[in-house]
Simulated scan of single mutants.
Amino acid sequence: MTYVGLVLISHSSKIAEGVKELIRQVVKDVPIETAGGTEENGIGTSIDKIQAAISKVDQGRGVLLFYDLGSAKMNAEMAIEMSGLENVRLIEAPIVEGAYVAAVEAGMGKELDEVEKRVKASF
């Protein structure tokens, strides 16, 4: 079965990995990738890391991106534009809670629009 994929974008690789670890306690099958930190593993974000994560989780059912702070949003928007994919969306929700809800909903096999709707309704 294929699922909507998730990308967790944070200025800290530890935060992104921690959110993924938390979600994996409940949801095992949904593709989740992290894009935390810069290329040099410093604090910040990387368009290249975000693009790579999008590519890894895209199973053709769409991808939702969650981020922590403002400049991560800007880099996510650029990565989406550069990807050329139409079903990649940036979600305005808390990274931990929003990604958790999205993973549970995606894990039930729901379509991109429904997963996005449920996340937005939760916040």
Rank of each mutant, 00 (worst) to 15 (best):
I95L: 13
I43S: 12
V26K: 11
I47Y: 12
V101E: 00
E105I: 06
V101T: 05
I91E: 02
E97S: 05
I54W: 07
A53E: 06
A103C: 01
K56I: 06
Y100H: 11
G98I: 00
Y3L: 10
F123W: 12
G5H: 04
K117V: 02
L64K: 04
S13W: 13
R24F: 09
I9L: 09
S71K: 07
T34G: 13
P94N: 11
K117M: 08
E92D: 14
D29T: 12
D113M: 13
E17I: 04
A35Y: 10
L112V: 05
F123R: 03
V63I: 08
V96T: 06
D29K: 13
A76E: 03
D113P: 11
G70K: 10
S83D: 11
V119L: 00
G98E: 00
S10A: 13
L65K: 01
V115H: 00
E17T: 09
S12C: 14
E17D: 15
A76F: 07
R118E: 06
G70N: 07
L64H: 01
N75L: 10
Q25A: 05
V57P: 02
I15V: 12
K20D: 06
L65S: 10
A72L: 03
P31N: 14
V119E: 01
I54C: 13
A79P: 08
E92I: 00
R61Q: 14
L6R: 01
N87K: 14
